[in-house]
């Protein structure tokens, strides 16, 4: 009895442990009984979409509607004959652009940078009258742009001139005639010492009975004497000053 039980136990153990048997069982579970399911397919199926294709010969038309472009807005400016201050004309576009950029910060009038007849040009302002352009040349010279000159060309003025005409009528007419310029002066001394310049100015005022100006230029001060409309007048005074010991004095204008 004991040995029979032992044999059964051994048999059970060997069956349970045998990997071959286990694997066969797993495969048997997975594999379907039939190799492939029997299937049937209908010879033809009616389908509304596929059937509609056979009779589809209609032409489909769509319309593209194009509209004319809107009329251009009325011009803001019209062009008339006038004057401008030209500050640059050359082949160097970069230099011109830099000058134009600087000017835009300096002056309130419009600044133009463009290419004309092979040259890059920088022009400023739109002046119907020559004297206004001349005034701007001088103003720019004071601001350090000594190279400006007046050119005659077409300028932009507002298309609606009613406001401009009004402005012109309010302006006094005296601007039209330029003031007589007393431009000759005698420069007596150039120094960096302000007190020395002021002292000399007092002395000169007393001795020669002339107006004396102290003109600062950077770190130095120029002591300038008088304002003369004619060169001959100025030279007379200059001679007198030189005789009185200020031998370095010379004429400026």
């Amino acid at each position: 009895m004991k040995y029979t039980l032992l044999a059964v136990a051994l048999l059970f153990l060997s069956t349970a442990c045998n990997p071959g048997l286990v694997r066969q069982e797993r495969l048997a579970n997975k594999r379907p009984a039939a190799d492939s399911t029997l299937y049937y397919s209908a010879s033809h199926i009616g389908d509304p979409f596929l059937d509609s294709l056979k009779t589809d010969t209609a032409r489909v038309s769509l319309v593209l509607t194009l509209y004319p472009p809107p009329p251009p807005p009325p011009p803001k400016f019209r062009q008339i004959e006038g004057f401008r201050v030209q500050l640059f004309a050359g082949l160097d576009s970069l230099n011109g652009r830099v000058i134009a950029g600087e000017l835009q910060g300096v002056m309130a009038d419009s600044v133009y940078f463009f290419k004309e007849k092979g040259l890059y040009k920088v022009q400023a302002g739109d002046y119907p009258w020559r004297h206004k352009a001349d005034r701007m040349v001088l103003d720019l010279r004071k601001k350090g742009y000594a190279q400006g000159w007046v050119v005659r060309r077409l300028i932009n003025v507002p298309a609606d001139t009613s406001l401009a005409a009004q402005a012109d009528s309010l302006q006094p007419q005296k601007d039209v005639t330029p003031p007589v310029e007393a431009k000759f002066q005698i420069q007596v001394l150039v120094t960096s010492d302000k007190e020395k310049a002021q002292g000399l100015a007092g002395t000169l005022r007393q001795r020669f009975q002339q107006e004396v100006y102290i003109q600062p230029a950077g770190t130095i001060y120029k002591v300038l004497l008088g304002r003369f409309a004619k060169r001959s007048e100025a030279e007379k005074v200059l001679k007198k000053i030189k005789q009185n010991g200020y031998k370095d004095a010379w004429l400026v204008y």
């Binding site: 010969t57 489909v60 038309s61 769509l62 319309v63 593209l64 194009l66 004319p68």
Partner: peptide, 19 residues
């Protein structure tokens, strides 16, 4: 195409497709 062409008056252009 035709959508970027400039016209002086309102224009209609037809596109028709047919199999």
């Amino acid at each position: 195409g035709f959508s970027d062409s400039t016209v002086s008056d309102t224009t209609r252009i037809a596109l028709s497709l047919r199999v």
